[in-house]
Every structure is written in C-alpha cells, then in structure tokens.
Nucleic acid binder design. Structure first.
Lengths: 117, 117
DNA sequence: ACAATAGTTAAGCGAGTGCTTAACCAAAGT
DNA sequence: ACTTTGGTTAAGCACTCGCTTAACTATTGT
C-alpha cells in the first residue's frame, strides 16, 4: 500500500493492540509515568516504550520529560477523530437503511434468498 | 500477547487499513458484490478477498453467495462496538478533566514546566 | 564519589500482514 | 458443448510487528 501513513491508519493501528488500549484506559483516568504505565503489564520496559511510541506517533498520547521521569497524558482530539470516522459511516448506513425501509414499505414482495458461505 | 483474539483487536485491526476502510465506506452506502467492491481498488481480486475476510472475521461485514455472485453488506452493530469503546474512554477523560478544572479553579498557582522529548 | 532509579537505544528473532501469480471451480450466456 | 464471468484456493515473498536481551545515559538519593 506504499505506506501513505494517513492519520486514521495510525489511529486505528494504535488502538488495535490490547496492551495499547490498556495504556489508553489507564491514561484516560489521568497522567502517568512510563513505569506506572508499565507496572500492570507483563512485559519488559523497552516493549512498553515501543507501545508508547506507537501511541505518540498516532497522536493519541503526548508525553514530556521532567527530570528523569516522563509523564504521559492522553490527547483527546485524536480519540475524537477516530470516533468521528465511525459515526460518519454509521450515519451513512442509517440513511441507507431508512431508504430501504421506505422501499420495503412500498413493495411488500420479498424474493430474497441465499446461502451463507 | 498470546493472541487472545478479543473482538476489539479484530475490529480496530480491520479498520486500520485504508483499503478496508474504503470497502466499509462503499458498503455503508449499500450492499455490493465482490467485484463491485474491487473495481475502484488497484489490486488483484484475491487481495480484495483477503481484505473481505478480515472484515468478516472482525464482524464488520457479512456476505452471502447467491448463484455465482457474493453480496456483501455492513454489520452496523460491530461499528457500534468500536465507537462505544472510544466514547467510554472519552467520558472517563472528560470527567477527569472536569476534576482538574475544579482543582485549578481552587489553586490558582501553576508551577508546571517540562521539555517535549 | 557511588549507587540506585527511570528511561533509552540497538540488534535480533519469530510470527503476522499485504500483496502477488498460477491454477482452479462453478454459475450464466451463446 | 463451450466460453465467459465471478469468485476461490494455494503458495510464496518482502516487509512490519511485538517482543526479547544487553548495554548505555542521565537524574536523584546517600
């Protein structure tokens, strides 16, 4: 796909991993340091760092270093972007469904059949 | 992570690919056959089939074969599941933000500083 | 000065992803 | 009957992902 790196790719990719979702859940309850983030996770620190980096390049999380501790916080606008895409699709689909409803209301014959693969 | 195959993994993974999102967009405007789905995509039919399979195992799309044509349609409940997870996180975060607002309103001193990494 | 704490970098490895081509099957059209 | 159309399966390949260990840096506590 030639890696066009669109924002939504990064966003959904970031959310696709359970560890990363856990990190987001933790951060949605307030900021945390890297080791606080790592504490409930059964993996090495570098692994956590890598997940954090994915979250940062997706825009879901921002972090800043003060002294020797890096504090991470959620970036709610990114979450909003993903939510928006989904709800737009839902809106499209619901409009389409309404039209189908209208159609079926006016054509009460239904010759539909098929085998699930 | 030992592949626990949680529904949200499959869902977000499925949405993380631009081709698959295009297919979902197409299907959110109404059902389509496999080749209709493939027509605007610059890739082979088997590749499209593979994307379709990812969408199906994620629960986002359902399809049925009638004669020799397979008709695909969106499964809106799955889309809803993903949206819900996000909006729950947002709700958490917003509550937390409100508490921070209260705190800042009562403590008008702000000794915050840090270097972006 | 020295040690402990908090994080970071680099290299490597096995499994998974996104494509391809080639070969194939089955319903529909002529 | 035979060809076209619509889809499917299998194998293979380059690349990415999620993790590891080992080594290293920088701040903080004693």
């Amino acid at each position: 796909m030639l890696n066009q790196s669109a924002p939504l790719d990064l966003l959904f990719q970031a959310l696709a991993d359970p560890t990363r979702r856990l990190m987001v859940e933790r951060l949605s309850r307030g900021p945390a340091s890297v080791s606080e983030l790592a504490q409930p996770l059964a993996m090495s620190l570098p692994a956590v760092l890598q997940h954090l980096q994915v979250l940062e390049t997706s825009g879901l999380v921002r972090s800043q270093k003060t002294g020797r501790v890096r504090t991470c916080r959620i970036e709610p606008t990114a979450l909003r972007t993903a939510e928006q895409w989904i709800s737009e699709r839902r809106a499209h689909w619901e409009r389409c469904f309404d039209r189908l409803g209208d159609y079926l209301a006016e054509h009460p014959d239904d010759p539909q059949k098929g085998n699930e693969s």
